[in-house]
Computed example of a mutant assay.
Amino acid sequence: MDCPLCKSSDNINLFHTYPSFKLLECKACELLFQTEAEHINEQDMVQAIYNESWIKMREQYAHLTFQDHATFNTLQLEMFAPQKGRLLEIGSGTGEFLHMAKHAGWDVTGLEPSSLSCRYAMQHYQLELIPTILTDELANRLEPFEAIAIWHVLEHVPKPVAFLNQVADLLKDDGVLFFSVPNLKSFMNTSYGAHSPIFTEVDHLYHYSEKSIPLLLEHTPFSIEALFTRQLANQLEQIYRKKFGASSLKLEAKMALMSNLQGQGKGHEICCVARKRNNK
């Protein structure tokens, strides 16, 4: 089977067989991918996974979503798109990021295929999300945006190159794309191996690294402005115990480890900021 990213056929190995899917590994570009990734029905996958239990989990940990993700991601907007304007988030979940971006001065629009998530965002944040995945029909109706955010969505997209080119069409020239994905080379993945919770998720169709992301964007109109990994401190203790058998980490040791992992590109997620090239 050819790699869907670099098209190599000589460097593909079986990474692991799980109960309902297989992961293949491309040694040439460091992409992990499910064998049937390109044929997954996104809408069916959303309805199966993002159910009432998922909503209850999101509500229980809303404070962490704000603290660990929405706050940081809103700061990225200020750093790379301080002029503000129209912002589209694809895969808005329960709406915490858009809630903060709106109050930071952005004119926000959100797409979220889970009807339960849309209801939650309206009830809690008065956000009227559009209940759908991104389609050609919808894209033709939307006006161009100054910025688009897709936090932890790209790993679920069956055809990422086509998707990113569709996203580019929705951006103004010189507009900014923000996205994050789980890091293939993270401390969690190297500690747990093939049984990492990131690898066993059936809806994680692709697993990207800092090597494969630039290769992916080569097939799009985007130029990378920032690419880095980030590690959350509150995840470290459990992982550290798994890898080294230690009972606990002191605060100073935990923060040193977090900094070390980010410095080595082993944080839990990859964050990318890319600008749409002006071809005129």
Rank of each mutant, 00 (worst) to 15 (best):
Q235D: 14
P144C: 00
I224F: 14
I148S: 08
P182T: 07
N234G: 01
E225S: 15
W151F: 13
A149L: 06
T229L: 07
S196H: 00
Y192M: 10
P182D: 05
L138C: 02
L171K: 08
Y192E: 11
L216H: 01
P214K: 09
P197A: 08
H207Q: 10
E218Y: 07
F163E: 07
D173W: 09
N189P: 06
E210R: 12
S212H: 02
A168M: 12
V161N: 03
F199Y: 14
P221M: 01
E225Q: 15
F228W: 14
L184I: 06
E201N: 14
V202C: 01
S180H: 04
F228K: 13
Y208K: 07
L184T: 04
P158D: 07
G193N: 06
I150R: 04
F163G: 01
L184P: 01
S180I: 10
V153S: 00
L216Q: 01
E201T: 11
A226Q: 12
Y206L: 08
Q235V: 00
S196T: 02
P214M: 03
N234T: 10
T135P: 00
F187I: 02
P182A: 03
I213L: 12
N165Q: 12
F179T: 11
N234F: 09
T220C: 01
L170H: 11
H207K: 05
F145A: 06
L170Y: 10
D169Q: 07
A226G: 04
K185T: 04
V202F: 04
T190P: 00
D174L: 09
A147N: 03
T229H: 11
L142M: 11
K185D: 15
L215Y: 00
L217D: 14
E210Y: 06
L177H: 10
A162W: 03
F163W: 07
E143K: 15
I198E: 15
F145S: 01
F178A: 12
G193C: 05
N189V: 05
D203R: 15
V157K: 13
P158W: 02
K211Y: 10
V176L: 03
L205A: 08
S209K: 04
F163H: 09
Q166C: 07
S212N: 05
A233D: 15
T229F: 12
Q231R: 02
A226W: 06
A194C: 06
E137F: 03
L154K: 13
L236H: 03
K172S: 13
L138E: 07
V161S: 03
P197K: 10
T190E: 14
N165P: 06
L236I: 02
L232D: 12
N140T: 03
Q166A: 13
M188Q: 15
N140M: 04
V181C: 06
Y192D: 11
S191Y: 09
Y192Q: 08
F222W: 08
H204F: 04
L154F: 11
E218F: 10
W151M: 06
A149V: 09
S191W: 10
T229W: 05
D203H: 15
